[in-house]
Design a protein around this nucleic acid. Structure first.
Lengths: 213, 213
DNA sequence: CCGGATCCTCGGTGATACTG
DNA sequence: CAGTATCACCGAGGATCCGG
């Protein structure tokens, strides 16, 4: 199996040969949130053909980017996780996410939101300098996707699922993107019902400042 | 023309829909160095089918990433340049280059080096903190490719072609990558003839420190 | 259910030839 | 110089099936 080459001794070209194929970086994006099973990845990548997912996983494993672990019983199953080399792709995914979140104005027809993509969206938009001295826990709900973000003095821990006793619990639609982009003020977001919160409403300003496109 | 979608309202996915297709980011890489004509891009991307290059240029233009300028006479011709939006892809290309330069240990069979890829390699490996207070001009020659780098107190200007009166003129082979990665000491590089210099040989240490993988 | 493998179709890619 | 035209091929997409 001869892998397609760009024929250049160049870091960008070499990187694209390893992770430039379709779906590959989206698999990495989901694995950056945490180890995932085959079926988790399928759910998180609606639309990926199963044979393509299997191919990508094999290629990424052969490239040393992910590794495949067989869980012992009783939790039998297969888990994929990033290797240290794979984890170093985070700056690539974050840079892509930052650029993409600016051109991604509104959802196209049929587009969905997944746990892992939303966690990565929080990480891409996080601005440490706006979070200095902050100690806040946010829960963000879009559709049936729930994620949370713990902000601790310039440091962020974002993960899937809810959090206990958050400072602010945000329920929103895709318009939360406009809020984070500054195209929708927190006041208008609340007034129009585009965003609903449980907790101190003024904290929505902090949220929009800390997670900004 | 229905563009293939990943079906997700996610910045990473949206970015990959626009610049994730084969060759697209390599076109952007070359245009980050400067405006280029169709034939320049063909030369800089050996192996790209001409119809694919034409397709990518149209897609990138439709996405607002590049623009096509028809030059007035007598310098007739067509020039492609990045739009401001396209220029904002630089962090993406640099992140990819940084990651790729680590896995790119040695050139594969038949791989070549181009002007634009080498200029971007200098930009990806540039470490501003190592260049504080420096005021140096390097010329780097690999094969028949010549590029130069002006380092001015933490700031870099790298471009194709030679420079006048450089502080150090470096002639090397692909092993210059090992030098920049710290796998080959400047002394060994000079002693084995892997790298030859004109100028003060001690400046090769500065070069390896300023441009480090 | 989980973790894939198999089959088939279609469209993009690659290579080359050709043209305004 | 700056592309378009043509065609073979292979990987993506989609559905189904299979072993544990």
């Amino acid at each position: 199996m001869v892998k397609r080459s760009y024929g250049q001794f160049c870091g960008v070209a070499r990187a694209l040969e390893l992770v430039g194929e379709r779906w590959a970086l989206l698999v990495v994006r989901d694995l950056l949130v945490g180890p995932r099973r085959y079926s988790d990845l399928r759910r998180g990548l609606p639309g990926i053909p199963t044979n393509i997912l299997a191919s990508r996983l094999k290629e990424l494993e052969a490239a040393g980017i992910i590794e495949r672990d067989v869980l012992p019983r009783p939790a039998s199953g297969v888990v994929y996780r990033l290797t240290p080399l794979g984890g170093e792709l985070e700056p690539v995914v974050l840079a892509l996410g930052r650029w993409g979140s600016r051109v991604m104005t509104h959802p196209l027809d049929g587009e969905v939101v997944t746990h892992d993509s939303m966690v990565m969206a929080l990480r891409t938009t996080f601005r440490p300098e706006a979070a200095e001295g902050a100690n806040l826990v946010f829960v963000l709900r879009v559709g049936d996707v729930v994620v949370h973000a713990r902000v601790d003095d310039g440091h962020l821990a974002a993960a899937a699922g809810p959090a206990e006793a958050p400072d602010l619990d945000i329920t929103a639609g895709p318009l939360v993107r406009d809020l984070m982009a500054g195209a929708l003020s927190p006041e208008d977001a609340l007034a129009t019902g585009a965003v609903a919160v449980a907790g101190e409403p003024a904290l929505l300003n902090r949220f929009a400042a800390i997670f900004a496109i």
